[in-house]
């Protein structure tokens, strides 16, 4: 007891002393954050396995109706319950997750790549090219993107590619602006000037300094676009220009749940929502870990900020 209350200076163990590698407190780095990455990876693996394996193993057509089993609460036979047409929700959610993940991932990647290409081109080439590209972005932003998305999706109604195109083509503009802004600040830094002074070409500056500088933003935008794309797909499905009603996706399932929850069928909302939340949270955690790794100088800031 007394030893805790009276401040007895402990002898410094010189053999264990070494120069600080970073300025963050030694306790912070491991402790709290070490489990985040494995957890996120684990959750994603489970979800992907669920989405891939269940429809395959169950051997039930997710479109097969069984009206006698309609509107059942979760039970041993139907773990997630059944919907108004008696379809098993385990299979429906798995199938829906698969479709939604696929659509969302493709949308997020296409939109981000397109945004990066346009943003980097605008920043690196500059001048008239920059102005034309950015005014195009402004013009696209001026149009409500759901409206534009509906037009694109309605041209090929019910086609999964049309849904992807309608989401990807309306969401790259934000990425382009952020990437251009980031690239512009990096482009005028002294270290880029140093590369030029050392005989570096435009391509070398782009590959060595600009791409790594915008990569965290790009990763973040993929992570942010993933859940957004799931919601967009559901909105399009709800408006009748997205996936057909017989094709389960998290969007169409949540759309069903919107009416069923009013009559107390909580399971129709809870399980698709859980799948959506778990997916987006895991993706966000992964992107945060990736960002920390890509931006070593950010680690200290995060560490110091997190300690406070």
């Amino acid at each position: 007891m007394t030893s805790e209350l009276t401040a007895v200076p402990r002898a410094i163990d010189r053999s264990r002393w070494r120069a600080p590698v970073t300025w963050r407190p030694a306790r912070v780095p491991g402790g709290r954050r070490r489990w985040v990455l494995p957890l996120c990876v684990g959750v994603l693996v489970v979800l992907v396995l669920f989405a891939v394996v269940v429809p395959w193993v169950a051997g039930i057509d997710p479109r097969q109706t069984a009206l006698a089993d309609a509107n059942q609460a979760p039970s041993w036979d139907h773990w997630f319950g059944t919907d108004q047409a008696g379809r098993d929700l385990v299979v429906r959610v798995a199938e829906g997750l698969r479709v939604s993940l696929l659509v969302a991932a493709v949308c997020a990647v296409v939109a981000t790549v397109l945004g990066c290409v346009v943003g980097l081109t605008a920043a690196v080439v500059g001048g008239r090219t920059d102005r034309v590209l950015m005014r195009t972005v402004d013009g696209l932003n001026a149009v409500p993107h759901l409206l534009l998305g509906i037009v694109i999706a309605a041209m090929w109604k019910g086609a999964i590619l049309a849904v992807i195109a309608s989401i990807a083509l309306t969401h790259w503009t934000q990425v382009a602006r952020i990437v251009r802004a980031q690239a512009l600040t990096v482009r005028t830094r002294d270290y880029v000037l140093a590369t030029v002074s050392l005989g570096g070409s435009r391509r070398q500056v782009l590959v060595r300094h600009l791409l790594p500088a915008v990569a965290p933003q790009a990763l973040l935008s993929v992570a942010l676009l993933l859940p957004h794309a799931v919601w967009h797909e559901s909105a399009l499905s709800f408006l009748g220009v997205g996936l057909p009603p017989d094709r389960p996706s998290l969007g169409t399932l949540l759309e069903d749940a919107r009416t069923r929850i009013l009559v107390g069928q909580w399971w129709t909302l809870v399980f698709p929502s859980l799948a959506l939340i778990a997916t987006t949270a895991a993706v966000a955690g992964l992107s945060a870990a990736a960002r920390d790794r890509l931006l070593p100088h950010r680690r200290t800031e995060v560490g110091v900020g997190g300690a406070a």
Binding site: Y191, L193, A194, A213, L294, L295, P296, H297
Partner: peptide, 12 residues
């Protein structure tokens, strides 16, 4: 050689 070595080196 630039004035600020911080600004003249890529933090990554």
């Amino acid at each position: 050689v630039f004035q600020s070595p911080r600004a003249a080196t890529d933090p990554r």
